[in-house]
Design a protein around this nucleic acid. Sequence first.
DNA 1: CAAACCATGTAACCAGTTACATGATTAA
DNA 2: TTAATCATGTAACTGGTTACATGGTTTG
Lengths: 182, 182
Amino acid sequence: MPKENRTKYVILGLLNHEDLTGYDIKKQVENNLSNFWDISYGQIYPELKKLENYKFISCRIDNSENGSLKKIYSITETGRTELISWLESSTRDERIKFEFLLKLYFSAEIKKDITIKNIDDFIDRHSNKIKLYEKFDSNLSAALDNKDHKYRYLTLLFGIYMEEAFVKWGNEAKTFLENVDD
Amino acid sequence: MPKENRTKYVILGLLNHEDLTGYDIKKQVENNLSNFWDISYGQIYPELKKLENYKFISCRIDNSENGSLKKIYSITETGRTELISWLESSTRDERIKFEFLLKLYFSAEIKKDITIKNIDDFIDRHSNKIKLYEKFDSNLSAALDNKDHKYRYLTLLFGIYMEEAFVKWGNEAKTFLENVDD
DNA sequence: CAAACCATGTAACCAGTTACATGATTAA
DNA sequence: TTAATCATGTAACTGGTTACATGGTTTG
């Protein structure tokens, strides 16, 4: 999958919108990008250092007189150029992996009931995601005059469509297995 | 995502069905599992060695008198037990990543036309996948009396539903962007 | 006779996870 | 006052990619 370091673009993309700490970046990914991305501190902090060395971002320290340490990062003009050239480039296909389907593929070996239980869990997990996304969706839809929001709305819509397809499939798969002789 | 080595189960799962070489394993993943999995020789050959050390699989060499080397692997009883305990275990959520959506999320920064072009490409790629899967589907559906085929059919159906959701989304996203002021 | 495919493998590298370590601030 | 959250970081590890190296076999 890799080759191109995408953590870099997550950071540049978020900083292009507002100044953030490493901690903030993690939060934003969790709250807003979690339906198609995730990230760990083990990626963020080393990458922030690298990006600062390359002058794609700069750092100021918020001391607020006490001993606490807070590093606030901003994107530079060079960083912005770098971000935009990535945004304009075409994207290759993602190679997705579903351990759930890998297991299902080989499941003729095990009792049907176990598989049906696993599909039930799958349906639950993804129904919950739809509910969650729809809550976000109603917030975003209310403020679509904001240009950023338009694009965020589209990524959320993607998540909803995908999850709906998953749940629809889950229900059909269950019915199929229930009506088939073991 | 990792923690548990899934390459191991791909190999055990395929060998549980028939004896195969490393090369065959690669081919089978490409041909039958590619809508939810992929694998490289750099994973397969070292893993085959490990699995042989653990006695999960055994190896015989096909010499056929000439100098060519062909290692044919079979699953052992221990290996089968290992496979089944994984098959019966519940699956945690996959963390999926879509570079395409990551880009889209930040795309308020670039010209709408470029994004629309990217969505067009996205629609093309995924429409082609649907066509491909439907061809496979008609083959599998014709032989659903075979127990293995039932489960393979379900994974394929998953792929079709997912790709259909992607294309549907793509078309709506395009319309949305075209009708919105830049 | 060349191109495509069969067949095995390694080494260097990059991406990402997990667990650990440390300490300040805020809200119940 | 204690639990949650804010905040920064590292080290060891696992997973996976890519490029390379080698050579046999089949098919047009």
